[in-house]
């Protein structure tokens, strides 16, 4: 084990040359159980590793609307009050020219959550609980989905077959769920938006087609589905591209007799559905009303006169 000893010598030498005052004990504690000669001549103390019961606080637990970090403000309470209105990274103070540690960690945590939302899949147990079967677009995985938007707008062979087999044809309203760019949004909101939407339609006496889940789906896929099923009105609940404020925001896109290749101006959207935006349950109720006015007015998009 000459190599190991040589390596240790090099490390000790480097650390010795750095000569960080007060840091002399550091290399020794790192070598647990090994009695190494000390370069600085101090006595080596064998240390035991102890495990605390403590924990590092979760940075994402902080409500940034309520966090106010400016030191020596002219009127802190007034600024804090303003901050309550929006989840922006304001009044986070600074350490010299840089962010403070806490906002820095929050920022990175938000960024990670956004990445996770895009790259993770929707839990199959959740979809089963909702009673949704799953179909796929022509994308086979997330990489293709992200790099080939065109394939995310087209169903694969299997999906077409499954829809033909399982779905009620020519429904007044066809609702389905799609991951889009945030699986986290589907997990966070669909359990509240979907039943509230169906209940809203029910209160208007409008029947709903067979629901399902489309994996690797982009918004445009709804037009192929509309044509395939002969739906009068189609609504997709789809995860939005995550931001640093929330990774759980969902949109509802809606069309009246959509067709593949139609102008985008014929589509309506309700966006920003999440617990700190439009509350999911109330959003469902509102979407039901928009769908009803599409059926009443027999149109959608910019032509639709909103009540």
């Amino acid at each position: 084990m000459i190599e190991q000893n040589a390596l240790r010598e090099i490390i000790e030498q480097v650390l010795g040359e750095m000569n960080v005052s007060g840091m002399n004990a550091a290399p020794k504690t790192a070598q647990t159980g090994v009695a190494a000669p000390s370069t600085s001549g101090s006595v080596a103390v064998a240390t035991k590793t102890t495990i605390d019961d403590g924990f590092i606080p979760d940075v994402t637990d902080v409500d940034i609307r309520k966090q106010y970090l400016v030191e020596n403000p002219v009127n802190g309470p007034a600024y804090a009050e303003l901050k309550l209105h929006a989840p922006c990274r304001l009044a986070i103070g600074k350490a010299g020219a840089r962010y403070k540690t806490d906002p820095m960690l929050q920022f990175r945590a938000a960024h990670s959550a956004a990445q996770d939302a895009v790259f993770s899949a929707v839990d199959t147990a959740f979809l089963e609980k909702m009673g949704f079967f799953t179909i796929q677009t022509m994308c086979d995985n997330k990489d293709i989905f992200l790099t080939r938007p065109d394939l995310g707008r087209r169903l694969n062979e299997e999906a077409i077959k499954t829809l033909n087999e399982k779905c009620t044809k020519n429904p007044k309203v066809q609702i389905y769920v799609s991951d889009g760019l945030s699986s986290a949004a589907v997990a966070a909101n669909v359990a509240d938006v979907y039943p509230s939407l169906v209940q809203g339609l029910k209160s208007y006496g409008i029947e709903v087609g067979t629901p399902f889940f489309l994996e690797y789906g982009r918004v445009g896929a709804m037009d192929q589905i509309t044509e395939l099923l002969g739906a009068e009105v189609t609504c997709v609940l789809i995860g939005e591209r995550p931001g640093l404020i929330t990774a759980e925001s969902m949109s509802a896109y809606m069309t009246y007799k959509g067709t593949v290749g139609m102008p985008e101006a014929r589509r309506n959207v309700i966006s920003n559905i999440h617990k700190d935006g439009t509350p999911p349950v109330e959003a469902g109720a509102h979407i039901a009303e928009v769908l009803k006015s599409m059926l009443d007015q027999k149109t959608s998009g910019t032509e639709l006169v909103k009540a």
Partner: peptide, 17 residues
């Protein structure tokens, strides 16, 4: 709280309009 429409729908369905 902003739940008026959803609650209204729930009431209407449960009371069968």
């Amino acid at each position: 709280n902003d739940i008026g429409k959803a609650l209204g729908n729930a009431l209407n369905v449960k009371l069968k309009n």
